[in-house]
Write a protein that binds this DNA or RNA. Structure first.
Lengths: 251, 251
DNA sequence: CGTCTTATTGACCATCCTCAAGCGACGTGG
DNA sequence: CCACGTCGCTTGAGGATGGTCAATAAGACG
């Protein structure tokens, strides 16, 4: 036990030192998902190519090269669907480390993807290839778990919009985002960045912008969140998770 | 062209005569999805075994043999999720021809499945095996398309609960169910069976029972649906599809 | 320092929920 | 056969939640 743990931690340190900094959130996320052995991981690091940048508002997957899967390195995106009258429903928010495109899970393929902030991506082709070549490898495991998690996220979204009230919805989304960002090292149990406008939050939660503003004020006044300048703090994760109708262990 | 069409139709007639009646909805659905060649189809017919019955309220996939995928032959089911306080959100309604269990799409695996009416199922193991053995066969194609459709259905569910109002939600669900049932031959463009209580509809749409009752009355009074004894008629599919914020071709 | 976007606030209205009562179909037991 | 539940559906009344509109404030950015 002690040796295994020590090995993993040393791998982690090594790679964080060796891999360029722009890979860190992605690598951290993949390791969290798949327990990828060191040789596979360095293989992946060597083959991560095809970096791209998109300005906010762009649609990375509406391009000619649409068929190729991408990892998000930096920035936020969303997969959305529009009604004829202009209303928008965001199916899923996409954060660094998330996979979008053909190989991805529900809600991140087959729908328009839009960059919510300036976005940096890298081709996921290398990872998909590795998964095919080694059906029992760590990368394969990571991608499979990623797809599984994507499904859960969509089901969570149905739960939110279908059966939760406004404050519950917002609380639930905050808890979800905290968890997802913590997996990439971009946040921890109590703090994370949230560079989204309230219009985006509203279209995710199925509420109006005005109401989201009021709900935010409500949560703040109850001491459940602090919200200064794109950075969210959760002073009492347990209480927030309870409000979101989650089980205690989601805190 | 003419020969191909004639061949398909003759296959269909043959199998409807040869296959036992309980297979018809399932076979019709699989053929709709995958254009399965005659030899593959008769192969499948010969290997469809493991029929089971469940009373309404039972949880077919909460059993010890939980891992095995099933086709629904007859009756309706739902995959649901419950909140700590007892509220229920139905993620997806399951109709004859649908696949549930490990090989199935989003919303029909990893969640409790409950029989909404008396349910008849058959093991889907034979079909899954055939899909593995013939990666370019019709059964494989049918299962892949089925999984794709399942994803779309969950995304539709997010759209419904997130961005549609009450009447729109109900109209949208009716149009969806009509389409799905038409694929099994259990209904056509204007009529289909709907053996669900309004509580089930409410938990699917994210509304209260009382409100569903009122919405139903509203649609009836506008001449958009008739609703007698578990049988729904849509006198004006186009207008209903428009109300549901769907494109014209969904009518 | 203007201009544009985003966030907040108030007032009013629509939607939807809850509670409660009543009704009808159906099944069960006397 | 009828009395009596139970279950599902409907209806009314009143209240909570959330939406719309409009005005204002607060940032962001050139």
């Amino acid at each position: 036990m002690r040796t295994a743990e020590a090995t993993v931690r040393s791998d982690a340190r090594d790679l964080d030192g060796v891999a360029p900094e722009w890979m860190h959130p992605l690598l951290r996320r993949l390791r969290t998902l798949g327990d990828i052995p060191a040789d596979e991981l360095s293989d992946l690091v060597a083959n991560l190519t095809g970096r791209m940048r998109y300005p906010a508002g762009d649609q990375p997957l509406a391009e000619p090269g649409r068929e190729r899967p991408l990892f998000i390195l930096k920035g936020w995106a969303a997969s959305e669907r529009r009604l004829p009258d202009g209303r928008r429903q965001i199916m899923r928010l996409l954060v660094p480390g998330d996979l979008i495109g053909p190989a991805a899970g529900v809600g991140a393929r087959g729908l328009p993807i839009v960059a919510l902030t300036p976005l940096e991506t890298v081709s996921a082709a290398a990872a998909v290839e590795m998964a095919l070549k080694r059906p029992d490898g760590g990368v394969r495991r990571a991608l499979a778990r990623s797809a599984w998690r994507d499904e859960q996220l969509i089901l969570d979204q149905v739960r939110r919009t279908g059966r939760l009230g406004g404050a519950e919805r917002l609380a639930d989304l905050l808890v979800e985002l905290r968890d997802r960002l913590a997996q990439t090292g971009l946040g921890d149990r109590r703090r994370f960045p949230l560079p989204l406008t309230q219009e985006v939050l509203a279209d995710t939660l199925g509420l109006s912008v005005v109401h989201v503003s009021r709900l935010k004020a409500e949560l703040k006044s109850e001491g459940l969140v602090e919200w200064r300048g794109g950075l969210v703090t959760l002073p009492d994760p347990e209480r927030l998770a309870t409000l979101a109708c989650r089980t205690a262990r989601d805190a």
